[in-house]
Simulated assay, not measured.
Amino acid sequence: MIYLLVVVHVIVCLFLIGVVLLQQGKSADLAGAFGGQGSQTAFGPRGAASILTKMTAWAAVLFMVVSIGLTILLSRANNNDHSVLSGAQTTQSAPKK
């Protein structure tokens, strides 16, 4: 089950990278860098969501769900180590005089 989720996670990661890189920037010019977007809305002009925007949102949600699922499965698989410091070596202190 863990291996299947890892494969799904890698596929979703690659898909998310590709979809984000295919999108066009909203304010890619120099005026957009300084806030001159030419609209009175708080976050700039908002058009209809394209298919790339919807695919990005669904891929991001799937990425988060698979990440949480992997975390839960891996914590259950390694249930004998409950501490971060469980494998650390202890040091001896110098004898008191």
Rank of each mutant, 00 (worst) to 15 (best):
F63G: 01
A33D: 12
P45Y: 09
S39M: 05
L73M: 10
T41P: 00
P45C: 03
T91A: 09
A49V: 04
L14V: 15
T53R: 13
A94Y: 06
V61I: 14
A94L: 05
W58G: 02
A88I: 02
V8I: 13
S50G: 08
T91W: 11
D81P: 01
V8L: 10
A57D: 06
L30Q: 03
L16A: 04
L70V: 00
G35K: 02
A94M: 08
Y3C: 06
A57L: 13
I51F: 09
Q24K: 13
A60W: 03
L74N: 05
Y3R: 12
A28R: 13
A57C: 06
S50I: 05
L52M: 05
T56D: 10
F63T: 04
V65A: 15
S39C: 10
S50P: 02
R46L: 06
G32A: 00
L85F: 11
M1A: 12
A77S: 11
V6K: 09
I72M: 15
V12H: 00
K54G: 03
I17W: 06
D29S: 04
N80A: 09
A49W: 15
L85P: 02
N78L: 07
V65L: 13
V7I: 14
K96T: 01
R46A: 07
S27L: 07
A60V: 05
I72Y: 12
W58K: 00
R76V: 10
V84L: 13
F43R: 07
S39T: 15
S67M: 02
L52V: 04
V84Q: 06
L16P: 01
I17C: 01
A88Y: 09
G18P: 04
V19R: 03
S83N: 13
N79Y: 08
Y3D: 13
A88C: 06
T71P: 01
I68Y: 11
G35N: 03
Q89D: 07
M55Q: 04
K54Y: 13
K26N: 12
I2V: 14
A57R: 05
T91N: 08
A60R: 00
V8T: 11
K26A: 12
G47H: 12
W58Q: 03
V10T: 15
I11N: 01
S27K: 02
